[in-house]
């Protein structure tokens, strides 16, 4: 049973990953990434890491990919496939191709080092033993205990990094505003004249006045 599920999920993972790279329409590429992440969650479940599986779905498929889908559905146009710039002749296209090849080569070397170093030895192993229970491996209680004892420093540093990134995002977004105040005022005044006195304004809603 677990073998069958493993192979179904593995096919999903690999075809999803291939789809992200191969599909020309950005919207389908994002959907392929979603399928990849969901299949990965199934693999985590098979490894008894139910907490990681749930977080994988909630954070990646739920939050991160929602933003991707949001942006691509708004901005991405079906009539302009992604491949055009890379396939284009001339200086830009060939440089992009060269850069892509270099990065892919670096990734292959890195993966080979990792595989030959430790990955091959792990294939013959049986993995950690499993006993069901509230404190078992992979449960939230077990992970929480590890995060607050053994990996406390790494956990805190990572959360600070995320906090800094979030604050940085807000600061950068504030610096770039669309219309300047006067221009915005001119746009809004005619709208105010047209509206009945009892109705609210959009500007009011976003806290402008």
């Amino acid at each position: 049973m677990s073998q069958v599920i493993f192979f179904i999920a593995a096919i999903g993972v690999i075809s999803g990953a291939v789809g992200v790279v191969m599909l020309r329409n950005p919207f389908y590429a994002v959907l392929a990434l979603v399928a990849h992440l969901l299949s990965l969650a199934v693999l985590f479940l098979l490894l008894r890491a139910e907490f990681v599986a749930a977080i994988q779905v909630v954070i990646y498929a739920g939050a991160v990919m929602v933003l991707y889908v949001f942006v691509v559905a708004y901005v991405g146009d079906q009539t302009q496939p992604l491949g055009e710039r890379i396939g284009a002749p001339g200086a830009v296209g060939s440089r992009l191709r060269l850069g892509g090849l270099l990065l892919a080569g670096a990734l292959v070397v890195e993966l080979l080092i990792a595989l030959l170093g430790t990955g091959l030895q792990a294939i013959d192993g049986k993995g950690a033993g499993y006993t069901p229970g509230p404190q078992a491996f992979g449960t939230p209680a077990y992970i929480g205990k590890l995060l607050l004892t053994r990996f406390l420093l790494a956990f805190e540093v990572a959360s600070f990094l995320l906090l800094i990134a979030a604050v940085g995002g807000v600061v950068l977004a504030r610096r770039r505003h669309g219309l300047d105040e006067q221009e915005e005022e001119d746009l809004l005044v005619p709208m105010d004249l047209l509206r009945p006195g009892s109705a609210g304004t959009m500007a009011e809603g976003v806290g402008r006045r």
Partner: peptide
């Protein structure tokens, strides 16, 4: 499940794609 409410939120996250893909 040992992950309780997280299970609910995981399926809530997938349910979003039902609405999103339907509209798109």
């Amino acid at each position: 499940v040992s992950i309780g409410p997280l299970y609910l939120f995981a399926f809530g996250a997938v349910a979003f794609y039902g609405i999103m893909l339907g509209g798109w």
